[in-house]
């Protein structure tokens, strides 16, 4: 492979890795939207929180694998507590109240993180197994990014298996498309929603831990990922997992090649893509309702 092709392939793999992580974040966001009708502004904050938790676990135990296991669970636990004790109680005041509540949660998490860990960026070291680069037919690619792609594929495989082959997954999918009807059939929708919210924050948490060694951990970590995840969910169609998957991959590549060719305007490309899709299909690619 000549160096130019190798560079394009490397950029494509970068985009794939980012797109995969983006989907991990966006999938939880779109499922929560499907069930409750609001976009959780604090969703990316849990993503960042998991990255900080992984730094802390790593500082205590020195094991990246343990951090990968524990940090997303801890973030999901915080998410479930927020759902149970904050979000559920404001449900009666309608969507606007819930939206504003998630703004409050995101502010508290952002500032709380600064209080506990400070504002400088904290490095995360990966185990020796994942360090270094892989030389493959002229292509020289960091092993850790390949690991991220593999990890995301495994997590998504498990997610798809749970959602599409189990009874629980069937109920969740039904609740995402019509929560009222599922409730009428005698299923405890608030409990189910707590589960979905926890699962969504766990997925975001996995992405947060996975991205931490690449970008380091700092308070602005959630900014780009949060915005990108919103664009994915809105463009893919609110509540649609397939739409989110497709748009995540497109945005990942758009970002990666955009930075290479029009570096200054890469963020604008993303909004341009969203504007074009929404102009043609106002409900998003696979969306059916507002």
């Amino acid at each position: 492979m000549d160096p130019t092709t190798a560079m394009y392939v490397a950029q494509g793999l970068h985009g794939l890795a980012y797109g995969m992580l983006l989907f991990l974040v966006a999938s939880g966001l779109t499922m929560v939207f499907g069930m409750m009708g609001i976009l959780n502004i604090a969703h990316a904050s849990f993503f960042m929180l998991a990255a900080y938790f992984s730094y802390q676990v790593l500082a205590f135990t020195g094991s990246f694998w343990l951090a990968l296991l524990l940090a997303p669970v801890a973030a999901a636990l915080v998410g479930v507590l927020c759902e149970r004790f904050l979000l559920r109680r404001t449900h009666a005041f309608g969507h606007l109240g819930e939206l504003i509540l998630t703004v409050g949660i995101s502010l508290v998490i952002l500032e709380g993180v600064k209080v506990f860990w400070g504002t400088e960026s904290l490095p995360i070291h990966v185990p020796p197994l994942l360090e270094g680069r892989l030389a493959l037919g002229g292509l020289d690619y960091p092993i850790y990014r390949l690991f991220v792609i593999g990890l995301a594929l495994v997590v998504l495989g498990v997610l798809a298996a749970v959602l599409y082959t189990t009874r629980l997954g069937m109920v969740v999918r039904a609740a995402v498309s019509d929560a009222g009807m599922v409730n009428a059939l005698g299923i405890n929708v608030p409990l189910l929603f707590m589960f979905v919210f926890g699962m969504g924050t766990w997925l975001a948490g996995v992405a947060g831990v996975a991205i931490a060694p690449i970008l380091t951990v700092f308070p602005g970590l959630a900014d780009q990922m949060g915005m990108d995840a919103f664009v994915v969910v809105v463009t893919g169609g609110l509540g649609s997992l397939w739409g989110a998957f497709l748009v995540s991959l497109i945005l990942g590549e758009l970002n990666s090649y955009g930075v290479q060719f029009v570096s200054q305007l890469a963020p604008v490309l993303m909004f341009l893509f969203m504007a074009i899709v929404l102009a043609i299909k106002p409900m998003g690619l696979f969306g059916e309702r507002e």
Binding site: L101, V103, G104, S106, L107, V108, V115
Partner: peptide, 19 residues
């Protein structure tokens, strides 16, 4: 220095108890 922490907490309290 973390004024936003206090204001975010106040926002949550207001939404919860005094919408």
């Amino acid at each position: 220095e973390r004024v936003e922490l206090v204001s975010g907490a106040i926002l949550i309290l207001v939404i919860m108890y005094a919408p």
